[in-house]
Amino acid sequence: MSAHASDKFVYHEPGLQHQFDDMKQQEESVSIGMWMFLVQEIMFFGGLFTAYLVFRSRYPLAFAEASNHLDAFWGGLNTLVLIVSSLTMALTVYYAQRGNRNMQVIMILLTMFFGTVFLGVKVIEYTDKYNSGLVPVTGWNKKIPETAGTEHAASKDPTFALPLIETRAEAASAADDHKKHPNPKGEFQWNYGTHVVDYGLSKEKETGKPYLTASERIGYFSNGVFDPDKYRDKIRMFYYIYFVMTGLHALHMIVGLGLMSWLLWTAWRGYYSAEYYAPVEMSGLYWHFVDIVWIFLFPLLYLLGRHFLAGH
């Protein structure tokens, strides 16, 4: 119990925290910690994906039709933007390992730029949903007073007397039409007609084989008659899942941008070197993870089922 006094004056490398013996141990710890964090993120999103898959398989037609209103152009653009941002992120790590401060800063700035573009596109998309009455929460849509839509006789009829929509152009014009529908309380609206279900029913007549699933028969029909309200509920469910998933993803992007700002500051100050670049690497892991989530979200939400419009 005597001479450990000398222990107090151990040399500490910069960035080495007191609980670790050396940098190797610290980096290993941080790395395992990050991977564990990503594992829990996967489980977190996993619950959402499960919910999505359950209802996609239960109401394929409603989900396909609902997803048709998502603009694959913006979605595709965002996918591209994120893939490029992943590249710049990877380059950030590369230059950090090289100890190249200037390129590091440039790459971080680029990454942040692409991240911001992604969020900007998201804002455009969300605004469109807001204007079209596709936010599933009552009162969170654009409120269109009664008078604005009076020139449309059809719009007063709640029974969805819209014609069968056959083409994409018609869908678009219906969408325009829809924008003029009054929506004084900002409710969720779905006035695009029911062409997908109609298509399914006519297909059933043609082939004599069931086209709709059993849950769809319960889900869309009341006493054997197509029920637009019940159908709209399923569309609304799609948009609910869409907003929760993309919203949580966007939240992760915002956290990522915060991380990038901190990284930018520290990189600018020249914290990172060939010996110490773990924070850059860890932020990179996080950024890539958020990108990968989008790589799953994009096809599931935007692309799956698009052939219902393109096909005929």
Binding site: P136, K230, M237, Y240, I241
Partner: peptide, 18 residues
């Protein structure tokens, strides 16, 4: 919690949830 707040969701059978 969202479902309760927004009155829409995936668990309420009245709107087709489970």
């Amino acid at each position: 919690a969202i479902e309760r707040f927004a009155r829409v969701g995936i668990f309420d059978p009245a709107i087709g949830g489970d």
